[in-house]
Every structure is written in structure tokens, then in C-alpha cells.
């Protein structure tokens, strides 16, 4: 039926939308989320809205995607909020350490629900279609990290918020781009990485690290799929409704579990094929770590209050949602 819907679309005028993201063309974000989502929109709008994906930074670099969508370089963009630090002050709350997310479903639900509730000014210059998250990240290292003591002075690759987190924990954060991390890990310039475990397979870090310490309270990255406002407003209300509905469906059915699925595959690869060893922290040890990173949330509240935001209210929203969805998705 897609043939006839194309014909019909041509009659009524097809809108072609360029979508920019940074994931490789083979990444599930492209093959399982963006492509099927774009196809569903194309079919549901009878071929009136055609989304063309430009993966692998071919249209915009990762840190330029949001502003590229604002100015119309791309019509739609998918990237992380944290690539442009300071640009999304409120949304940093979702990535702060100290909040436990059981999995990417929880983290995604919290982020998207939370953004809708808080509706911060910083994202109102585009039409946000969905936000989803990686969920918890873990420490993967060349030497075993079983306790805080093992972490002291250990060189771990991290940038942005994660660097602050590691510093608080007593590690030695080394900032470098993910593209340099493989070489640095392989030669031991750094001894570990704090990231989602997807990296173990996607960036082959399992080839160069041996231990995996589970830390579901240390890390989270939130992604957005967002559209240029003028382009959005130029669409018919029917097509807008369709895009919102399709996005909602793909958020629920694909996006929120995207990282869980990848993490599962990556862990299988790391444990079964590369012989990595898993380390689980005891409850007592976990609370030592959490106690150290908690002040980062207090600092956030203080800083946000100074800037004239309701710091505590933002943090409470995140916590309430995390409690709710941690119950729902164990």
C-alpha cells in the first residue's frame, strides 16, 4: 500500500524532513528506532511526511544538533542534552548521580514524564517529540574495583558530569573523547571508563577491559528527538497529531527499552566472548558510594536556586518519578 500512499502524498504535497543524529548507521538507534519510526509516520500520513535520516554526524556534529534544529540546519535532531553543558540547566537533574535507575525503561520514563511536568524554558525553542535515556552506567576497568578503596586515584575516562562524580568518589578522572578511549584503555593510559555498558560492544571496550563493577546510581544520559518549531507549525494539525501518536507508540515500544536491549547484548558479549568478570557491590558498600555523591544533588539545588529556578522542586520531581517507575519496572 505504500506505493499508492506515495502517489496520494505527492498529490497533496510531500514534506521532506532531514533528521540529523550522531549514531553510526548500523546502531539500533537508527535501525530499530529512527528508521521504523520514520516509516510509520510516512505510512500514517499517507506519504505526506517523509523523514530522511542522516546518521553518523553526516549532517551535524553531535554537540551542534540541538542548535542546528533551532536554526533549521536539520528539521529534526536526535542527540544528548549533556553534549552542550549549561544549555539545559534543569535537565541536568535527570543525569545527576545518586538517583538509582533500575534500567533504561525507568530512566526514560522519568526523563520524558519529568520534562513534560517541568516544561523548562530551555527546550521550548523546539518541538520535543520524545526524550529517552540510557539508564544506569557501570564502571569497566582493567583492575578490579570492589570497594571505594580500589577506586582511589584510579585513572578513569570521563567527561562532564561524570568527571565530577568520579572526583567526588576519589578516582582520577581523565577527560578525553569516547573516540580516544579505546586506544587509551588498550595501552593503559586510563584504567577504566564510566559509561553505559553498550560501549563494551559498540566501541569494543570489552577487548581492552576485564572487570565490570555495577553502579546503577552513578550515571545516566538523556537523549532527545526534537523538531524545528517553524517546520512543526507548518504541518497540518492532522499530521501533527499523527506524528505525536506515532512518537508516543515508538517511545513506549522501542525507545525506552532500546538501551536495556543493547546492554543485554553487550553484557553477553563481554562475559561470554571476552571473559569479563562482573563485580556487584554489597548494600553497605553501595551506601558508602551514594553518600559521597549525594551532596552533588544538594549543590545542584543550591545552584539552581541561585539562578532563580525551583531547585528543590526539580529534584523532588525526579526522585518521585524514579521511585514510581522503579516500582513499575524492576
Amino acid at each position: 500500500s505504500s506505493g499508492s500512499s506515495t502517489e496520494q502524498g505527492k498529490k497533496q504535497g510531500t514534506v521532506e524532513l532531514n533528521l540529523a543524529h550522531f549514531f553510526p548507521a548500523t546502531h539500533p538507534a537508527e535501525t530499530e528506532l529512527i528508521q521504523p519510526w520514520a516509516k510509520a509516520i510516512y505510512e500514517a500520513t499517507n506519504g505526506q511526511v517523509k523523514i530522511k535520516s542522516n546518521p553518523g554526524e553526516t549532517l551535524l556534529k553531535a554537540d551542534g544538533i540541538y542548535d542546528g534544529v533551532v536554526s533549521g540546519v536539520a528539521d529534526i535532531g536526535l542527540s544528548c542534552f549533556s553534549y552542550t553543558r549549561g544549555r539545559f540547566p534543569v535537565l541536568e537533574a535527570f543525569e545527576l548521580p545518586g538517583t538509582t535507575y533500575n534500567n533504561s525503561k525507568v530512566a526514560s520514563k522519568v526523563a520524558w514524564e519529568g520534562i513534560k511536568q517541568l516544561n523548562p524554558k530551555e527546550v521550548q525553542d523546539t518541538k520535543l517529540l520524545m526524550a529517552f535515556a540510557t539508564g544506569p552506567g557501570d564502571l569497566f576497568t582493567k583492575v578490579p574495583v570492589r570497594s571505594l578503596e580500589d577506586l582511589q586515584g584510579l585513572e578513569i575516562r570521563a567527561t562532564g558530569l561524570s568527571a565530577d562524580t568520579l572526583k567526588v568518589l576519589g578516582a582520577n578522572p581523565v577527560a578525553m573523547p569516547q573516540s580516544d578511549a579505546y586506544e587509551a584503555l588498550s595501552k593503559g593510559v586510563v584504567k577504566g571508563n564510566l559509561s553505559t555498558v553498550e560501549v563494551l560492544k559498540g566501541w569494543k571496550h570489552a577487548e581492552v577491559t576485564q572487570y565490570l563493577t555495577r553502579t546503577p546510581f552513578l550515571y545516566n544520559t538523556v537523549f532527545f528527538v526534537t523538531m524545528n518549531l517553524n517546520k512543526w507549525n507548518s504541518l497540518s494539525p492532522e499530521n501533527q497529531k499523527i506524528i505525536e501518536d506515532v512518537s508516543k507508540k515508538y517511545f513506549e515500544e522501542v525507545a525506552i527499552s532500546l538501551w536495556d536491549k543493547q546492554d543485554e547484548a553487550a553484557l553477553k558479549y563481554a562475559f561470554d566472548e571476552k571473559g569479563m568478570k562482573e563485580i556487584k557491590l554489597s548494600d553497605q558498600e553501595t551506601s558508602r558510594w551514594v553518600n559521597l555523591v549525594k551532596p552533588m544533588q544538594d549543590n545542584f539545588v543550591k545552584k539552581m536556586n541561585e539562578k532563580g529556578f525551583q531547585g528543590q522542586q526539580i529534584m523532588d520531581t525526579v526522585k518521585a518519578l524514579a521511585d514510581k517507575y522503579n516500582q513499575e519496572y524492576k
Binding site: S82, R85, G86, R87, E122, G160, L161, A163, P173, A175
Partner: peptide, 9 residues
């Protein structure tokens, strides 16, 4: 919009 560098801000 307050954009700063990710690590040292």
C-alpha cells in the same frame, strides 16, 4: 543560553 565546556564548565 549559557553553554559551557562539558568538564571544566
Amino acid at each position: 543560553n549559557g553553554t559551557v565546556s562539558p568538564t571544566t564548565q
